[in-house]
């Protein structure tokens, strides 16, 4: 088959959470570029509507927003139900959403136990429950590809001297919950791949590193970039190729992987 046909998402229904910002935005745009029907899980339908319109107009794809709150079990259940009621199947599921506890991630060794519990309750437990529900649907279909967002920070510990000159950033980098959650997710992808494989369902993770944004501290960017092999933070396009590969039939023989998308940060 033509390689571009393997990468095509035309006629495929894709559900994506966290698909309007940061890495999730790049993922949504890549899947829309490839022609997917986009179901965008969003806090409110109204706030997502301008983006939905933009996808329809600029990419020529079907797109729909569904109200979703990862911190609400009923909402998690409703998300899957709404997509199935609307189109009958989920060909690819991209899970990028997570909550950031009040006051931010991390905050050092003394990270508030309330935040640790929030992370476990929402980012770990609720995400796994959502993945189970989508997995059950894909088992019924006997096909499907799941892509979860792990992190470079699920593969390695922090490099403290990246924060030299920015002591205010150090407590945010230290912490417990993010590394446990993302580390667990990468291992779970292997575990889940060994279960879902018999049903024709694949599951993989992308593990991105730092993303350049207008809020990135320049000194941090300089120090961090020295640890990558390509000498820079990620841009908005860098996630697109890996996401499309894993979501599409081009990766029909890939499952259980955690692919670092980090410019080579974790290879040294």
């Amino acid at each position: 088959m033509n390689t571009f046909d393997l990468l095509s998402m035309k006629g495929k229904n894709v559900l994506i959470t966290g698909g309007r910002a940061m890495y999730g935005l790049g993922a949504t745009l890549a899947l829309a570029d490839a022609g997917a029907n986009i179901y965008l899980a969003s806090h409110t339908i109204e706030s997502a509507q301008p983006f939905i319109e933009e996808l329809r107009e600029t990419k020529g794809v079907q797109a729909k927003a569904i109200a979703f709150d990862l911190d609400d079990v009923a909402s998690v259940e409703n998300l899957v139900k709404e997509v199935i009621d609307d189109c009958g199947r989920i060909d690819s599921f991209i899970h990028c959403s997570r909550i950031i506890p009040q006051g931010g991630d991390g905050i050092g060794w003394d990270e508030d136990p309330i935040k640790l519990e929030q992370n476990v309750r929402v980012n770990s437990a609720s995400s796994l429950y959502l993945l189970q529900l989508v997995g059950e649907q894909m088992i019924k279909q006997k096909s499907g590809s799941i892509v979860v967002f792990g992190s470079m920070m699920g593969l390695i510990g922090i490099e403290k001297h990246n924060y030299d000159g920015n002591p205010q950033m150090v407590p945010g980098a230290y912490g417990h919950a993010y590394s446990v959650d993302k580390s667990g997710l990468s291992a779970w992808v292997r575990h889940a791949a060994s279960y879902y494989g018999q049903y024709g369902v694949r599951i993989n993770a992308v593990c991105p590193g730092g993303l350049q944004s207008d809020r990135t501290n320049p000194l941090f960017a300089e120090k961090y970039s020295l640890h990558t092999q390509v000498g820079r933070l990620a841009n908005g396009d860098d996630i697109k190729g890996p996401i499309l590969l894993l979501a599409s039939d081009a990766s029909a023989y890939l499952t259980g992987l955690s692919i670092p998308v980090d410019g080579g940060y974790t290879c040294i």
């Binding site: 796994l128 446990v180 959650d181 779970w188 292997r190 575990h191």
Partner: peptide, 8 residues
């Protein structure tokens, strides 16, 4: 949940 817990 087993793989997730061990892997964490």
């Amino acid at each position: 949940v087993k793989g997730f817990i061990s892997g964490g």
